[in-house]
Nucleic acid binder design. Structure first.
Lengths: 271, 271
DNA sequence: TCTTATTGTGATTATCCGAGTGAACGGCTG
DNA sequence: CAGCCGTTCACTCGGATAATCACAATAAGA
């Protein structure tokens, strides 16, 4: 059963990597055989025999399969590593093209300049959130307060940005929910104030029974905040991080967090 | 005109990277603006206003766009590098998963063992051909004859494999059509016989007027051959390399090349 | 050599997904 | 209060792809 899922999983992955259903199925079938005829492939892959030919021909042009022209034709998959590498490189090249192409599209003149005193943005995906976090730290002027709810958020890059901020004279305050991280952070950032207590309200929200876990919480210059959370999605529950960040002293969201911080948290470090 | 193509090219690339048309168009529109409303996006991207919302929401979950919840909503694209990196990593992960997943699918028992005295396989794509070339060189036992018609085929990896073959006592003969490569090869492989003449029949096939150019030609142990060619496809003519390789002394293809080699080529080096 | 099973190609139909369009809801503004 | 804008939702249409079929080409066997 679990191994049956392996086939299916592989087929899904191949489709996500751009192959059609028949192509994916045929390829997986071929990886299970040293070589195979259309009939054999059809039998173990459930691809209609008459369609195997088309599928395999496409696979051949993609460099994933070799064809022996004989009667009957025989097909053979390239090695797993070679296939993975071929597909990976294909997308790598596309991503590079995209990068250079996008740089060349000329900007459109904004119809109108909207001044933004306060704003709240939503974003998702750990990587985007990480990058925005670092960016905000870089922008910091006087103070950075960062609560790390999930260890994965504390990356080496972030550490460097925090150090740089300290060097600029920015006051850095780090809150931690797991004692295990404390040592590392204190060693990394000797000038920073690090605390663990006062964060009970972060992790446990038993009363409401919600499954949301705070990943990071950043307050920059009492002016800009970023909050991220892991939402335990139903069923396929795993790591999708979502965040909002807000700017502007008068921003409602920022105000709330500022208050929250000053009562529960700042009392510990900024009397 | 050229810059118009830039938008279109970028949209195409994004679609190849898995985005839907509307998503791709909306994203490109957003990269042209510091930020934008649904209306603005619709105007410069030709995406129906009412569908901008769906598209952008998907982009947000992919970490490519940030959303400002206000009225009207405002959207902002992440930086070009961040977007490219995000997409690249997504596929990198898929390729890795594929690798490990494929390793775990159990082989199917071949219905029947077919003995293969001679076989001819077709394959395409420079990378696959390169790898098969190296593999054949690695298998060589006594003799390797390699004609390099296109400089790109002579990779550092190939050089190493050829060296290794020499060290095994294999006789290595290299044919070159471009004088420019000669020095490099002679320096790289002091023990190999390198020649340039006698290959006129390779490059020019004027009489038939065909556009095919030979990329590489490999003969291993007088037993296995590989021939690759660049087929100048109509219109979008560029570099798609196609190859066949054949095994078995009695293989017709191998026999032909063997004769060809002994008349036109081997007379120079193997009297 | 004729028969028959198997292999391969092409055409045809069915199904699904995404593009495109418009109705409807709610809030905001004049 | 009425009209406008922003937003969501439901629906149609078309193209791509999955699935089936009919038939030609080839090989195997009697």
């Amino acid at each position: 059963m679990n191994d049956l899922s392996n086939h299916e999983r592989a087929i899904e992955l191949l489709q996500e990597l751009g192959l059609k259903e028949y192509e994916a199925k045929a390829f997986v079938a071929l990886t299970r055989l040293p070589q195979g005829t259309a009939k054999e492939i059809s039998e173990i892959s459930e691809v209609p025999r008459t369609r195997v030919y088309d599928a395999v021909r496409v696979l051949e042009t993609k460099g994933l399969v070799e064809i022996q022209h004989a009667s009957p034709q025989r097909f053979r998959a390239v090695s797993i590593d070679e296939a993975a590498e071929t597909l990976r490189r294909e997308y790598e090249e596309r991503a590079d093209s995209l990068r250079t192409t996008l740089r060349e599209v000329e900007p459109a003149i904004p119809t109108e300049e909207t001044e933004v005193t306060h704003e709240v943005w939503a974003l998702s995906g750990a990587s985007g959130i990480t990058s925005r976090t670092q960016q905000l730290v870089d922008e910091s002027d006087r103070e950075v307060i960062l609560v790390i709810g999930d260890e994965s958020a504390y990356t080496p890059e972030l550490r460097e940005r925090l150090r740089a901020a300290e060097d600029r004279g920015v006051s850095v305050v780090i809150g931690i929910t797991e004692e295990s991280l404390r040592e590392r952070v204190e060693r990394d950032l000797p000038d920073a104030k690090v605390f663990v207590s006062g964060l009970e309200w972060l992790s446990s929200s038993v009363e409401t029974g919600d499954e949301t876990v705070i990943g990071r919480l950043l307050l920059v210059d009492r002016n800009t905040i970023l909050v991220s959370s892991f939402h335990e999605a139903v069923g396929d529950g795993h790591d999708h991080e979502q965040a909002v960040f807000g700017r502007g002293f008068d921003n409602g969201l920022v105000a709330i967090v500022r208050r929250l911080m000053s009562t529960g948290l700042l009392s510990n470090v900024d009397p």
